[in-house]
Structures are given as C-alpha cells and as structure tokens.
Amino acid sequence: MAADQAKDARQAELRASVISELPNVDFVLGYAKGFDPLHATPITVRSEKDAARLIFDATCVQNLTTGLYGLKGKRIGLVVKGCDSRSVVQLLQEKLVERSELVIFGMPCDGVLDLAKIRVRTDITQVRGAEVTGEEVRLLLPDGPKVLPRRDVLADKCLRCRYPNPIVSDHLIGQELTPQGAEDTYADLDGFEKLSPQERFDFWKRQMSRCIRCYACRNACPLCVCKHVCLADSRDPHWLSAEATLQEKWLFQVMHALHLAGRCTECGECQRSCPMGIPILLLKRKMNRELKELFNYEAGVDPEAVPPLHTFLMEEDKIKDRGQLW
C-alpha cells in the first residue's frame, strides 16, 4: 500500500539521519515498538543497532522533550513531532536548554492516537494488531477486525493541530504537511463554561477527589523543569500538606496551571499521563485562551518572544481598570 510505503520510507530516512548524527551526540531519544500494537516506547539510541528499532507512526504519542532539562550539558538527539517542537521552542525561550546541545529530527505528523478514546470503544488489552490509514484505524481483535474512523480516535490536540510540522529541527524527515486544523475554537471550553458555577465547582470537586496525588501529570510535563524541587513537595514554603484532602489536590492543579501560564504548549502530556483520567488539560486550555485574548500570546512558537507575565505595559490595551467597573 502506498501509505505503508511512505511510512517505511520515512522510517528509513529517520534511521539514516539518526545514524549520520550518532557520532555528534551522546544519544538520540526516539520511539520504538512497544509492548503491544497500540503502544510505542521511548528508547535511547546509541548505536546503529538501536537505530534499526526506530519507528515513527500514530502510536508515537509521548512528548520526548520531557526531561530534556535534566540532560543539560549533554548533546542530545531528539525525535519530535510538530507539537513536541513547541515544547522545545518554549524551553529554548526560557533558556532552559541550549540549542547547540540539541540535534532535532523533526517529523511532520498527521496525528497520533488517543488510547482513551479507543479504550471506550474496545477492550484494548485484546488488540492483536493495528493499522492506521488515512481514514481509518483497523484493529485486529481475536473475534475479527474492528474498523474505527480515524478522526474518532485521534488525540484531541491532533484534531485542532496547527503546527504539524516541527517549528525547529535540524533534520526534517519526510514531506511537510498542510495544517488541517483551523483556529482553535475552544468549543470544549465553551461547552464546559455553559454550566453554572456551582455545576463547574461540583464537576471539579468530583474530578479532583479522584486524584491520587501521584503527580504523573507534573512528571510528564516537559515544562515542569523544577519537578525535583517542586513547590508541591516543599515544606518551606509550605503550600501543600501531605494530607490527601480534596483541597490540596485541587490546589495542586491550580498551581500547575498557574505555573504553566504563558508556558504551556498544550502538548497534553499531563492529561494523557493521568491514571485517573482527570481532564486537567481543560484548566491549561482556559489559561491559554485567556492569554491569547489578553496578550495575543501563544507559548512555544517563538523562541525570542517575551513571556507576557514577565513584562507589562504601562497602559494595558485589553485590561480594563477594575475598580471602575462596579
């Protein structure tokens, strides 16, 4: 099949590029086949043998820039999708990583799968094989194949993706794509905000009370570079206690959203990693929407941009003088 050939060609190109750069880097972070047909797994490539395991397809969901900050000082090769490249840009903007220490293999990407969406449609433990084509995802189940429309099981971020092509890269692998998503309409947020405050409050109360405080969300976030000294774990200042109360869990999510204000690129890793399926990305999307509206700012697209909360205008054009309003 043509699609398959294209995929194979791209994989071969990736492997060749990686091999060509191996002498210049300590290692390359990329994807390999995971434990089942729906999972890819991150690997570190140090040799040609490792490179032969590299893949790139719709199962490569992880954002490999997470943890990049901890590797400062090493020379790292990195396989990034369009969305992941925004995390790199953001890290560069904050001078948290050095551009000269990175070799970036940019992968134009037409979408990755959202396992949560497949999970509600089928028992994913039974999947024996998977094949993704332009329009559909064909799952091989013990009782025969099951075909799902591809758009139904793509990650949300892919459906509204405006940066399918990496913003920064040293090696661009394969053909650039035309962005399929239009401006983000924030329809999900609009829908949510139609609820009354009380309903919203109850929604989060329910959601947050399920949080097990595993901090998988934080640990997956490429921009939580300070996780080793995270404010959530600190005794002085003492923001959060060790008690697993609703308040503490909720406040942590507020903390995460506020710390990511003007930085979050909506890679979605936090929500994807949450074992409890708590829709925490919604909070960050809210933040981003407001930032866009107030400061016309979007994180992770311009390494030279000034973060909106680290600057000000004497006369803000979008912020009304409060006290006059009521």
Binding site: E193, P197, R200, F201, D202, K205, W250, L283, L294
Partner: peptide, 9 residues
Amino acid sequence: RFLPVLGVD
C-alpha cells in the same frame, strides 16, 4: 479570568 473555570464565581 481563570477562576470561573474552577466553578468559582
């Protein structure tokens, strides 16, 4: 602008 999404009026 963020608080309302939490359900805080």
